[in-house]
Design a protein around this nucleic acid. Sequence first.
DNA 1: TCTGGGGTCCTAGGACCC
DNA 2: TCTGGGGTCCTAGGACCC
Length: 448
Amino acid sequence: MGGRDMGHQANSSQKRIALIDGNNFYVSCERVMQPRLVGRPVIVLSNNDGCAISRSDEAKAMGIKMGAPLHEFRSLIRNGNLEALSANFALYGDLSERMMRVLGQFSPRQEIYSIDESFLDLTGIAGTGRQIGTDIRQRVARWTGIPTCVGIGPSKTLAKLANHLAKKVPRLQGVCDLTGLPQEKLLKILGHIPVDEVWGVGRRLAPRLAGLGISTAAHLASANPGWIRKCFSVTLANTVRELQGISCLDLQDIAEPRQQIIHSRSFGAAVRQFSDLAQAVSMFACQAAAKLRIQQSTAAAIQVSIFYRNNPWSITHQRHAILDLVPATDSTTILADTASKCLRSIFEPGYDYIKAGVRLLDICPKHPDCAQQLELDFDSAQTESAAQARLADTALMRTLDQINARFGDGTLMPASSSHRADAPWLMRQKSKSSNFTTNWKELALVHC
DNA sequence: TCTGGGGTCCTAGGACCC
DNA sequence: TCTGGGGTCCTAGGACCC
């Protein structure tokens, strides 16, 4: 009986969760630094300038779809009717951090969900949802220049839906609060939302649900969670409860370290030479290692994948290899070396390689007392020198990270990943904006 | 011709154990 | 020839998210 708990929840002990996200986030970041883009149709392209991954409202109005490939709108760009920018993730990451810091001022409990989204627990915080939401939007806009929408609900899933409405319904002025509504009123609102707009219902589930007569968020909210559990999964059963106002998904306000770290890229052009592939893989290993050190972890295994085609028209195939790292490590040099060993074991000449990736696995925190597997080694002198080598390596990596943080990624790297500026595997980025906020050389100058 | 990259969680099935 | 039941761990694959 889905309705059993619903009346019970609709009281003042209800949670109040907000979801705030940046509107067209990447485009908005570009506009903060380049005001001439405001009011114009603008898109931001994926790596390699492949397809659209962020669109301004004006670009959406022109019918440009999310993920649409560049060649579909080349002529629009040529004629000056559309501005297309290469992705500048250093800029987006930096503006994201600023936005998240501002949001954190509104609640002691914050979950940073993605680069442009944050949940806040507003339970027990003074003010109506509308008042707080309006304050949030104004402060973020004033302090970072990023436009946002705010959705509020008794569960994360309803906060997500509220955020969706805040964007879609102009009358709401960017803030939608679904807490404290009578059941009939809430169901009436959910009745206008297609089921695939619900968080957790994707392309595959939506048609299956529709086949069972569940085509709106209201239908799903009225379903029996036990039955959904049987026919689908616990995840979707939780979604049903969340839609009923029963909070099942906790706010994860303490960031868990990543369980795996991936760095992979499609190449700007196909490569055939082992040396090119080796440079790319070494470089990707360095970048993955840097991410690993940021979260102060070590990896106990590394996987290298390479993607190739038999001929330009064939489908993509892949090969991969995994090697264990004993002891677990966060060292760029060891990770890059091991990645090269993986690559050597799977490389075969004669193919067009179009992409490669490095994945760090079996990640655990880098504590001196962390139960890491040590090498079996009965020669204590050797063990000691290995320990000293590790200490020296840690110091070296700290220096490397500091230099790269100050002078830009890639300033310092192992010789194995050094390459020419026109290496074929480097990604294509024809129209990237400057690193206005993260590189001294490209700092934005504001004329007052 | 041209279509990204980086994550998480769940489930089913096989290996293995007692 | 007979041939249980229950548990854990691991992995691959599916589905979802931004």
